[in-house]
């Protein structure tokens, strides 16, 4: 436990990583407990951001010379998250048109 010192806390990689874990856990909790599909979507966005934060952090701390692969990945994540949000909302609206509901309790057609 060497990360709880205040000098250079912004320069310590572990602080970013722990923060990412906290955000990710918040995302997981959101995903697991929400009944509303949009809520689940919010959780997913949180998790994605936690991942992107990790990429940026490792990009910053893991390289002596300049290497922006992490940045590129983060950008991809952001872009794909946006795309995913678009599709998810489109599906959501389509489902809502049919069922007048966005609750996961009502959407259980895959029941075997």
């Amino acid at each position: 436990m060497n990360f709880l010192f205040f000098e250079g806390i912004s320069q310590n990689p572990n602080s970013y990583l722990i923060l990412a874990i906290i955000i990710f856990c918040a995302g997981i909790f959101t995903v697991l407990t929400r009944k509303n599909i949009i809520g689940i979507l919010l959780g997913i966005e949180l998790m994605l951001n936690a991942g992107a934060l990790n990429f940026i952090a490792f990009s910053f701390f893991r390289h002596e010379s300049a290497d922006y692969s992490g940045h590129v990945f983060a950008i991809f994540v952001i872009v794909l998250a946006a795309a995913e949000a678009v599709v998810a909302l489109a599906i959501l609206l389509a489902v809502y048109q049919q069922r007048r509901s966005v609750s996961t309790d009502d959407i259980s057609d895959l029941k075997g």
Partner: peptide, 18 residues
């Protein structure tokens, strides 16, 4: 047995994923 896993509830699937 297996069909109980597949109960159509989305939350359940999310549990499985996690």
């Amino acid at each position: 047995i297996m069909r109980n896993l597949q109960n159509g509830s989305m939350n359940r699937y999310l549990y499985y994923i996690v």
